[in-house]
Design a protein around this nucleic acid. Structure first.
Lengths: 113, 113
DNA sequence: GTTTCATATCGAAAATTGTCGATATATGAG
DNA sequence: CTCATATATCGACAATTTTCGATATGAAAC
C-alpha cells in the first residue's frame, strides 16, 4: 500500500505552485476549458497541460472531454478530502498534552520529549 | 505587497514533503524537542533543522527555546489559516455556474469558456 | 576555563519540479 | 482527404528543493 504520507503530499503538492493556485482561482467561477485558462496565464500550452495533469491526479480538479475541448472544474470531493487530510495531520490529538498540563507537571516538563 | 499566491504556496509547500508530514504527525501528540523528532525519522540532523525552519516560516509550527533544547508544537492559528486558504482557493464562488445551470443554457454550454 | 550536547548554518551534490519547443493525437471544418 | 484547432506527450534544460557532511553557535556540565 502506498504510504499515506505520499497520498497527502500529492494533494498538497497540487496546491503549492503559484500557477496552479491561479488556475484553481479561475475555476472557482465555474468550469473552464484549457484554452480559456491559458489566456489568463503567462505560461506555454504544454506547461498548462502539465499543471492540469497534476491537479487532476491530486483529485482537486475534474476534467471532461467534449469534442476537441477539455473542460476542467473544481472537485468538491477533492476539496473535502484536502480538508480531511489537513485535519488528519495538523489537528492536535485529543490525548495531546496541553501547555497547562505540562506546567502542572512541574519538573516533568523539563524533560526532552 | 507579496502576492497572495506566494503566501498560499508557502503554506502548502510546508505540507507537501513526506518527512514534514511525518513531523506534523509526531507533533499531534504534543510538543516535542528536535532530538526526539529526529529519532523517529530517517534523516540527518541538519536536514531536520531545515524542515523545521520551513514548517515554522509557514506558520504551521511554533518553536520555543529552553536551554539548549528547541521545542516545537503545532500552531492552531496556522492550521486555521491553512483551512482558510484552502477555502479561499478551492471553494466555488457563490456566482459559479452549476452543471444544471449550464444544461439549461442549451447551446450556450457548448461554447469554449 | 574546557568539554559536551543540542541545534543552526553553510556549501555542495543529488533529486525533483517547472518550463519550453517540437511533435503526436484527435476532433471537427471545408 | 486535407487543413486548422485543441490538447497531450516527449526530451532537454533551468530552477528549486532535499539531502548530507562539516562547521558554527550557544548553553549547560565539569
Amino acid at each position: 500500500m502506498e504510504s499515506k504520507y505520499v497520498e497527502c503530499a500529492r494533494v498538497f503538492k497540487a496546491l503549492c505552485d503559484e500557477n496552479r493556485i491561479a488556475i484553481l482561482e479561475q475555476l472557482k467561477a465555474g468550469e473552464r476549458c484549457a484554452c480559456v485558462l491559458l489566456k489568463n496565464l503567462d505560461i506555454g500550452q504544454s506547461t498548462l497541460s502539465h499543471h492540469m495533469k497534476i491537479l487532476c491526479e491530486s483529485g482537486m480538479v475534474r476534467c471532461r472531454q467534449e469534442g476537441k475541448w477539455t473542460y476542467y472544474s473544481l472537485s468538491p470531493e477533492g476539496r473535502e478530502r484536502a480538508k480531511r487530510l489537513l485535519d488528519e495531520f495538523t489537528a492536535p490529538s485529543p490525548a495531546a498534552e496541553t501547555d497547562a498540563a505540562f506546567a502542572a507537571a512541574g519538573e516533568e516538563a523539563l524533560l526532552c520529549r
